[in-house]
């Protein structure tokens, strides 16, 4: 579904991503881990063009999204994103947060958008919150709404950038459970996370990044038990 070829990204003179090559298959759950500053967020943000790659190609279903006249809107419709800090629209209630983009971008009728939104709120366990404003929700609830908001666009691929890093520990599970549900439901996911337990349990594949490069890429069992590289080994020693 996604194919990344020789992806480079620089901010000014500093190269942040160096020659990334990988792919994401349909229905796959990919987790991306690595030390702070290794370029995980930047990589994820390149996939939906929140950052413009400096060079290289990213293909979505065979179409080059990095070519100059690529259809960014079409890409964004197919790729949802969930941020560390939620970024819900604070002046809209939960239901409007979920229906605004489908109605504005896809021209979905209000009734239809609302019924889809209610289904999604039920899925993330927040049916009773549809009239609430984001400021009245807990962190975990905000993040679940943010996930539902991204899902409301009915994307084929969901990107998560450290979805639980801003949460109090007791709220991490409720959010991870929602993501697990998505994984089991067959959604394609790319998740940047520091939750090694989650990566071990849910991921089909782990990418380990360091200093802007993909250092190691394998299945979670192998990666966590017997990493091939010294860098991955020392990272795991630190976080496990």
């Amino acid at each position: 579904m996604i194919k990344v070829e020789h992806l480079h990204k620089s901010f000014g003179k500093t190269e942040v991503l160096t020659d990334l090559n990988t792919s994401i298959e349909k229905g796959e759950v990919l987790t991306i881990i690595g030390p702070s500053g290794s370029g995980k967020s930047t990589f994820l943000r390149c996939i939906n063009l929140l950052e413009q790659p400096t060079s290289g190609h990213i293909y979505l279903n065979g179409e080059d999204i990095t070519k100059p006249n690529a259809d960014t809107l079409k890409l964004r419709k197919q790729v949802g994103m969930v941020f560390q800090h939620f970024h819900l629209f604070p002046h809209m209630n939960v239901l409007d947060n979920l229906t605004y983009a489908p109605m504005t971008v896809k021209g979905t009728a209000k009734k239809e958008a609302q019924s889809l939104a209610r289904d999604l709120l039920f899925k993330v366990g927040l049916s009773e919150k549809e009239d609430a404003y984001p400021s009245s929700l807990s962190g975990g609830q905000k993040q679940r709404v943010a996930i539902a908001r991204a899902l409301a666009m009915e994307p084929e691929l969901m990107l998560f950038d450290e979805p639980t890093s801003a949460l109090d520990p007791e709220m991490v599970k409720e959010v991870l459970d929602v993501i697990k549900d998505l994984a089991h439901g067959g959604m394609t996911l790319a998740v940047v996370t520091h939750e090694m337990g989650f990566a071990k349990e849910v991921a089909d594949r782990v990418i380990f990044m360091d200093q802007g490069m993909i250092v190691e890429e394998s299945n979670p069992k192998k990666f966590f038990e017997k990493p091939e590289t010294v860098r991955a080994q020392s990272f795991l020693d630190k976080v496990l």
Binding site: L88, F89, H91, T104, R149
Partner: peptide, 27 residues
């Protein structure tokens, strides 16, 4: 206004005008 608001809108595919007038300006 928090930069994340613009990014969230962009990630959802919301075009510039509605983003400006319905998301950023009200805040």
């Amino acid at each position: 206004v928090d930069k994340g608001q613009k990014e969230a809108a962009e990630a959802l595919g919301i075009p510039y005008r509605p983003m400006m007038f319905k998301i950023i300006l009200p805040q």
